[in-house]
């Protein structure tokens, strides 16, 4: 388990937990970043992280990317 901000570009991972971000956690869940969902890391070179959730693309700041815990193997 590790934060999505440590995942290399181009990898697909499974979301495990959303650490205490309160409203932000709910918001992420609603757009499809919920525990168990598969997401792709499309851009991660410092600055915001771009996530691929199905066909949709979301940019999250590094603070949020630190709180999205994903499986680090697969």
């Amino acid at each position: 388990m590790c934060p999505v901000k440590n995942i290399a570009e181009g990898r697909e991972v499974r979301v495990l937990r959303l650490l205490g971000c309160g409203n932000m956690a709910r918001r992420l869940c609603e757009v499809g970043v919920y525990p168990g969902a598969r997401i792709r890391v499309l851009r991660n070179q410092g600055g915001p992280v771009m996530l691929g959730v199905g066909d949709a693309r979301f940019a999250v700041g590094r603070g949020i990317a630190e709180k999205i815990l994903v499986s680090d193997e697969e």
């Binding site: 992420l28 771009m50 979301f58 940019a59 590094r62 603070g63 949020i64």
Partner: peptide, 12 residues
């Protein structure tokens, strides 16, 4: 304080 973390959809 810090600015809120970014959260935005990148539409097609």
């Amino acid at each position: 304080g810090e600015p809120n973390d970014l959260f935005i959809e990148l539409p097609p």
